[in-house]
Design a protein around this nucleic acid. Sequence first.
RNA 1: GCGCGAUUAGCUCAGUUGGUUAGAGCAUCUCAUUUACACUGAGAGGGUCGCAGGUUCGAAUCCUGCAUCGCGCACCA
Length: 711
Amino acid sequence: MNEKLLKPYNPKETEERIYKLWEDSGFFNPNKTLDPKATPFTLIMPPTNANGSLHAGHGLVMTIEDIMVRYKRMRGFKTLWLPGLDHAGFETQVVYEKKLEKEGRTRFGMDPKELYKEILDFTLTNSKNIKSQIKKMGASCDWSREKFTLDDDVIKTVHQTFKRMYNDNLIYRGNKIVSWCPKHQTSFSDLEIKDEERIDSLYYLKYGPFTIATSRPETKFGDKYVVMHPEDARYKNYTEGQKIKLEWINGPIEATVLKDEAIDMEFGTGVMTITPWHDTADFEIAERHKIEKEQVIDENGKLLPIAGEFTGEHIKKARPLIIEKLQKKGLVEKIDENYKHVVRTCYKCGTLIEPQIKSQWFIKMKPLAEKALEKINSGEIVYIPEHYKKITVHWLSNIMDWNISRQIVWGIPIPAKICAKCGHGMADLGNTIKKCDKCSGEVIQDKDTFDTWFSSGQWPFVTLGYPDSPDFKTFYPTDVMETAGEIIFFWVSRMIMLGLYITGKVPFKTVYLHGLVLDAKGLKMSKSKGNVIDPLVLTEKYGTDAFRMGMVVGNTPGTSLALAEDRIRGYKNFANKIWNVTRFVLDNTKDADNFDPKNYDEEDAKSEEELSSLMKEITKEMDEFKFYIVAEKLYHYFWHTFADIIIERSKKKILENKNADSAKILIYRHLNILLKALHPFMPFVTEEIWSMMPNKNKSLLLIATWPNQND
RNA sequence: GCGCGAUUAGCUCAGUUGGUUAGAGCAUCUCAUUUACACUGAGAGGGUCGCAGGUUCGAAUCCUGCAUCGCGCACCA
């Protein structure tokens, strides 16, 4: 017997060696498959952000996906799990900006090329680290096909997609109101915004004969239009277009009356003035009435010359000064200091979003969403858990155009020229456009980069080498997309739309969404709370197999998981239990090879049958993605039936030499089958034990056949 | 406001199409100690399944309403 078995199982000594064994075997690559004609199974790994190290959420991803992949490989599929890394545009830039801040530097004023190079170096350094961490998790992915979102071929395909959508009129350059973060100096899509409830003051101001209510007096300098509902009886004497002279913040102005149905007669006085440059609703009213729009606040959150004496003042400081002035002029009727409302903030830094009118690239989402809805509603894409389908359908049915321009350097450059004269935008892949095709004006290169989700939204077909690669033909559409429920809109839904648009096929057949990993108390992990759990600390302490079991047992899809160290400790004991059982079994079955299971005594025959029906049961559950229950059943059966009952029973038979052969072959076969079944969950300890088994065929457990039938 | 979840043992959660006495892990308590394994074994306690109705021979499960918590979306100045 192997001497290692005499000591407790030692993951540290085992894991690296085993991983190397697998990697060197070449079986992570589906090209080396036992049956080249086997049905493919494809899973694309969500590209890991290359701006830090693995967190607990990644631990969950690697665990669940590796379980799927190992299972399919053992079932004989030509299995591809394609790993990738994400430059993660804005996310990474934010991380890097914080690093700069610590060094007393800032991105503003830096040479963009220099900044880009620095972030690239930073990312490449992190990539190495992250890759080795993914390997520590036991991920059996095909490293030979690894992709990075800034690889040349990825950029090329993304550029072609841009051009194609531009030609198809699905991408346009528009002067529209966008969400602008004054701290990060970039615009966002509607998804990068976080709503936050706040209590502020609501100011009731005298505006000529009217009283208007506002929570943002600092925007009101340019308000020259006063709007009311056309059916509001209180204001029936005022007519559309009527001019009214009145005294305002910085002196007398002439206001114009507008009537618009967007006005809520119930709110405040039923009258408001509009600031089209800095408010979405006001912008729409202005568009409808075709009136001019004027910028009041600049990109840094400071007031422009329209504010007169307040010019250059930051809006935060200006507000009380403006109110003070208005009070002196007798224009403040009252202040409600308990006004509860929702403001929009930057999801990263919490800074108040300042809506601004900007010229940006937008994707028309409606036509794309309609096609996606068709496929989702017809069941071509299955959602696990199912309720995510409803959420997706709801979002797709109310979709807004997607702003894909970002004013940051870290990303894929937008291949486009902008006319300096008329602002017209043109897609330009080969850098060939020299003059505006509308007004013949001078053109300049667009300096913006793509929203990172525009490129990762193309991930399934980009990674497989669309359109000509053999891989694309073999492995697309992929089978499963496994990712966090959090990014269902950001990523999953956009992949469906872009995948359908470019390839005409759904990018994946099943969407499996996992929940958040929370700390032991069920709180969201965050650096500020100091409750972040590093998965690598846990694997170091308890072994990767134990960590993986802790991640998967009882963790139903879509539900968040409270990660308690106790759980993982329990599975460390389990790994050792398997180890010790092996010691007993191998010690007692040296001469049992020739016994025929047909000659079992009655109770052993029953046990054999019980195990085989358990295998049928869990095979079905594996196919239904119910890993949480399979892991638990295997744990329970191994420990409390195999070890506690069957082995205890066998001791007596072997010792007293009564039906000893029956007992020996039963425990040997049990161990054999259970090692295979446990392999997807606990790959290291099972592979290590497998190598000690006196099997005739000494191939790796990695490619052993799943024991679903009579094995 | 609209939508989506959740509510089951002290804690974290399972519970498949309605069907015996509602399960697991951890925690707690009692007992065991020459053995594969103390990283152990045997056993125990602990739940009016959020509340109120309804459907049914039968409901944790299906329907309606309510409450609490969480999330998403849209918004009113």
